[in-house]
Design a binder for these strands. Sequence first.
DNA 1: TCTAATTAGTTCTAGGATGAACTTATTCGG
DNA 2: CCGAATAAGTTCATCCTAGAACTAATTAGA
Lengths: 399, 399
Amino acid sequence: MNRIELKSLLAESTVATPAGRIVRTLSERGALSATQISRLTGLAKSTVSTALTELRRLEMVVEVGSEAASGSVGRPATTLTLNPRAGSCIGILVGQTEIQVILADVAHTVLSDQSVLLEPDYSTELAAEVVARLIAEAYEGQWHAPEGLLGVGIAVGGPVNPVTGKMLRAGGMPSWAGVDMRELFGAMFDGVPIFCDNESNCAAIAEMTWGAAQGFDNFIVYTLDLGVGGAIVAGGQVLTGIAGGAGEFGHVVLDPEGPPCRCGNRGCIETYASFRGPLAEAERHFGRPMRTTDVVELALAGDATCRRLIEEAGAAGGHGLGLIGSVFNPPLVVVSGRLATAGDILMKPLAASFERYGLIKHGDVPDSARTILRPSRFTDNGACMGAVGLVLRHHGRLQ
Amino acid sequence: MNRIELKSLLAESTVATPAGRIVRTLSERGALSATQISRLTGLAKSTVSTALTELRRLEMVVEVGSEAASGSVGRPATTLTLNPRAGSCIGILVGQTEIQVILADVAHTVLSDQSVLLEPDYSTELAAEVVARLIAEAYEGQWHAPEGLLGVGIAVGGPVNPVTGKMLRAGGMPSWAGVDMRELFGAMFDGVPIFCDNESNCAAIAEMTWGAAQGFDNFIVYTLDLGVGGAIVAGGQVLTGIAGGAGEFGHVVLDPEGPPCRCGNRGCIETYASFRGPLAEAERHFGRPMRTTDVVELALAGDATCRRLIEEAGAAGGHGLGLIGSVFNPPLVVVSGRLATAGDILMKPLAASFERYGLIKHGDVPDSARTILRPSRFTDNGACMGAVGLVLRHHGRLQ
DNA sequence: TCTAATTAGTTCTAGGATGAACTTATTCGG
DNA sequence: CCGAATAAGTTCATCCTAGAACTAATTAGA
């Protein structure tokens, strides 16, 4: 094991050697013990032990202290992470009305998290400017320097091809159609690998890594908000589709003669299940501009109108969930989007609606073979954390 | 490498050793050269060479002659298969109106293929009787004996949990609900592993192994016939779902107030895209009972009515295809079912309808990122061949 | 406070995978 | 017809992984 560098171990070519596999596993999962690494990689304990000794010597891996052994007998495990000094990662959310930047180190520690709200359909120039400013601010007061940047992940609030980095026709961000994310942000990060994927797929990575889907290799993320969408994880991999168009549950056509959708088709699920309508109703009711989070907060505080709007949205959203059940029959569905922060107010009607629209009814199969519905654990930084995860996972590599 | 037996090498536990991986790869793919094995398994050429020498010595692997080197320079490859004498596999199709049995050897040679038509909703007792008779007949005149049976695969014409082997509530086979396929057929094959999955998933395995999806790791099978359904292959694995309910494209609810479906819900895709209605129309028109294949044959022979019925079915079937496009955006969709034998008569309106219902339109992405639509290569034994493939792949193991 | 049980992690050796260099078998072009 | 080019397949020394047996560190219970 002569002259290994973290950067090269993180690259996919070196995946086969034990050291490489350990580094990649730590990168993906954060803090782990030697035994957990052994289980996750399939390598023998002895092999992991040998490799770790060397990685510790090279200061690529550091101990973060023994777990306080809560309740379990036996020698407590020593938890290890990649050495945070080894480098940093940047996650960028290019959302429909906001830009967010998270700076994290390779040990999964968030060093900085900032966001800026923008007018809908802001320009690419403004985006580049805001991102550059937020990144400069993120590095201020950190000992981490931009030179140690290992990769940049971009979560995009519209359809993007994760292989080419090009935006498709985008309902919510019309002027971004055809934009090449590599070209736009590449200049800012000279020679640093850039990864990108849509918001939903990034949220799925965040759920898998830190959220409600930990330990699941197969699950669906179902996003309910102004848009309706989601992501598919099969065999631990996010399915992106040949053009990055997988997981667009909201744009399944129910009625070709239905109301027109921003995607250009008619009668999409989104035209029925989007929170746009209910939000407009809330704005009329309260006589002021509102955001989804305002309605959720009011509902949680006990407002009957807001509660009803969210319950109705849950019932409508069950249509898409029924589809997910019939098509995937997944072990787990993580309900994401700002509506998910409403908790049971949303989840109860959603579950009832899922039962109605689903193919497999209660009692058809044992409980162990039923789909679990779970709200996301992230409130508002899921997609951007997923962009960080994109780098840590090397998923959808661009450069 | 002391005392290896083919049976144990085919078992999943031994997967890690090179000999085991080579045997499993040959089992899955049929005939391969050493270089191809090396590429497919990721093992070094030298490792494959050493292991093959031993496997040849043990007569577990045999050469089937050098390729006639069509056009390519360089030393021609020697093609190898598992020794056919090493054992046989049985594939059984338990369809809604037929039972089919295929006997094949481990080198993927079909030794016998027979089927029997039955009345709809035939009893489990009749099924067991017919299967036993067909298997006895299959072994007649073969040097292969039932003792050399390595595994049995069962393709079921209804929803089945591939892990437990239990049938779910089944629209087309009502009296089979809750039947345990292991119990029913296990007695017939003492100690021999039994694998099962639904018809569509088996068809997907057949397409992947011998059919239109060779070389694709991600694709969708979309079945158009009296029922509408399909299968999902992601990362080379068939997605079965937590209860075996994945791929039920036909039972996605479009309109909860729509016509009742045999599944119990209303307004499923199947109620609009099934060939039941058109078939009834054809029967009225010709004044005699007809099957899907009769209509297809007449259409291919030039009958205008039959042609119109199939074209209309293609247009209706595009709705499900649009859903597949929005949800998966797959590189390939294999159109299966008896309607697929109509070729362009079906495929042209289907492609037009796909374009209409799909999210990604012509011109949105380069041609290389567009979904390919392809009819199945199998006319009527796809699912049963897939049941053989189930054994050769050890997918959805039961015992 | 001691012992058994349990889990984490290390050491060492045997056996085996690897990759470089080689041989073998073919096509193509002069 | 011959040599260069190309690709398949083999051999062998080196290095590395795996598994058994070990040590280490903790909890539970007597």
